[in-house]
Design a protein around this nucleic acid. Structure first.
Lengths: 144, 144
DNA sequence: GTATATGCAAAGTCTTTGCATCGTT
DNA sequence: AACGATGCAAAGACTTTGCATATAC
């Protein structure tokens, strides 16, 4: 059973596969960190100078509709985007180096269970943590 | 030691106390849920029809500067505002009744400790959970 | 060939800012 | 009286939309 790639899934859903959609998906999928629509456009223009920002937005909306991408709001005015991973509900943002980590752990499940114990049935959990990642923390001596 | 109210604190910080600032503070402080700048304005206009949206924004910025209010981003385009409580780092949003609860618990501390155990020093933790609150959950029978 | 996707420009939403006037100190 | 705060309108940042053209199927 060959895995369906994004192009297949787009076509299988009755949409057309275009150069622009492929570019957006490739860059989004290959990115190490979250990108805003604008940053995505910049990155794509290295490969192909002719792509419009509105196409980026329209493609992102399509990818979200198909469950291939998701929007992330980190607390700024802009939205960031990443390939969809249901488990990536937590975002650890290092304020020193700027990296955004996903914490591959049971943390979100723990939160869910904790809340269930208090009667709140959690459907969607979003955890955004600013702080200092292990690498950056190592370089800084504790204050006392 | 009499507690300093918002008006005192504004004056003590060298700012002037105005009708507009008082209104914003009163409504913000008395609100049961998070309000956007626009909603805040609507609520205030019940008391006083002459208040400009830009004054609302400017007052909110001032209150944040003084540590009296804080901005909350729940995942929409708009910002919401509430009186500052360091402990209110979690927002439980009921998708059925729309209420926003603060979970008065040790949950955020647990998250912090969990992450510390993994080497990430959390400074600012934001937890936004959509789901169903105890009251609304009770009214709905489990699917099997 | 036809219907969908794109590019461009215009509009929309939320927030901020410049400037003359008003109001607190 | 002086200087900070307000109202108004204009501009800014980010995103969406209308429409003619281009392109995938």
């Amino acid at each position: 059973m060959a895995a369906m790639d994004a192009a297949d899934q787009i076509r299988a859903s009755g949409y057309r596969m275009t150069r622009q959609r492929q570019l957006v998906w490739d860059v989004l999928h290959g990115a190490e960190r979250h990108l805003s629509a604008d940053e995505l456009l910049d990155a794509i223009r290295d490969h192909d100078p002719d792509l419009n920002l509105s196409s980026v937005y329209r493609t992102l909306a399509l990818l979200v509709e198909l469950g291939l991408a998701q929007e992330v709001r980190l607390g700024d005015a802009v939205s960031y985007w990443e390939p969809a991973h249901a488990q990536d509900e937590d975002h650890l943002i290092c304020d020193t180096c700027g990296k955004v980590l996903h914490h591959p752990s049971e943390l979100v499940d723990q939160i869910r269970e904790h809340l269930r114990g208090h009667g709140f049935e959690a459907k969607d959990v979003k955890l955004v943590v600013h702080g200092q990642c292990p690498e950056c923390g190592d370089r800084k001596v504790d204050s006392h």
